[in-house]
Amino acid sequence: MKTNLKELRSAAGLTQADLAVKLGVSRQAVIAVESDKHDPSLDLAYKIAGVFDLPVEDIFDNPYRPKTGA
């Protein structure tokens, strides 16, 4: 699942370890989500959205949503 998590994290001045602590997951999990090697559960996606105070779809691209203006 495409994500801009890495950019958001960097902009917030967080390291992968910092974000992992905030989310209560391992650093490997953060790395995997950032590099599109793991599709997070809905629960984890909501946690990530909560950390950045953004809607989930502003962080993760919804591949099932029809593109508007296409």
């Binding site: 209560g24 997951v25 391992s26 490997q28 999990a29 995997a32 989500v33 793991h38 997070p40 559960s41 629960d43 984890l44």
Partner: peptide, 8 residues
């Protein structure tokens, strides 16, 4: 006990 990624 571990997180979802490690569990998977």
């Amino acid at each position: 006990k571990t997180d979802e990624y490690m569990r998977a």
